[in-house]
Amino acid sequence: MGEAARQPLKPLSPAVRVGRFLQPWIRRLVLWLFALWCLFPIYWLFTMSLKRQVDAISRKPKFIFEPIWDNYVKVLGSGEVWLYFQNSLIVALGTTALSLLLGVPTAYVLARYRFTGNADFGFWILTTRMTPPVAMLIPFFVVYIRSGLFDTHLGLILAHTAITISIVVWLMKGFFEDLPKELEEAAFMDGATGYQAFRQICLPVTLPGIAAVAILTFLFSWNEFLFSLVLADRVQTVPVGLYNFVGYQQIRWGELTASAVIMLTPVLLFVFVFQRQLVRGLTLGAIK
């Protein structure tokens, strides 16, 4: 969020008190120390992508070395990484779209309508995330082989959606619950149907929430490993493809880390786009 976007919130200053009990410089120090903690392993991964295999695992970790681009040239030249990228993009975008499409309406009804079994239904959605993958994989595999979903994008999208839909429902439920119900009541007065109240009144207001949930869903799907490994063969997603660099004999550090760095770019782009969406939604909220 940029300076300009935050500005309108400023005059309301008490909210800004949330963390005000620290001096600004201490606050800034803590924030940047945490950033360092997040960044250091990524930085190390990045340096390894610029090293030769011998330097990557040398006895004395090298901070200063002559960077080489061979790993990137090799990875980008082989073309495989593009396939992983394509597969992951299709699967992650498909999963995000499908999870939101199915999950958001469910969340809205759970948050807003009283009906028998509301709580139990919500809990059942939650249990779908609880089963350990070890128990799910073999039945999934058998069903997928029989139904022709094995080794298809659609198959992976469905499997990932089954994993992510619970989190979409539960997070969005929280956002909908926070809306004042006068919003919809006013719409009903004007003769709106339940669907119109949802689609035209509640959905736009919860846009920042939807953006945050979309980012999470995308990341979960983009990084999912186990199901993607077992339920597909030629349709390799990024994590599965990268795992190919981990051999029994040795790990090809340069190619592994270079691919990881390359694959970080589209994710950051996606986050960036949705972050703008998030800011737009927030400022809308401030005007309201």
Partner: peptide
């Protein structure tokens, strides 16, 4: 800062864990 904080969630876990 927000972008940096998201990096551990965004990087492919296979690569990150082996780097660790």
């Amino acid at each position: 800062l927000r972008l940096i904080y998201l990096l551990p969630l965004a990087i492919t876990p296979v690569a990150a864990v082996f780097t660790f």
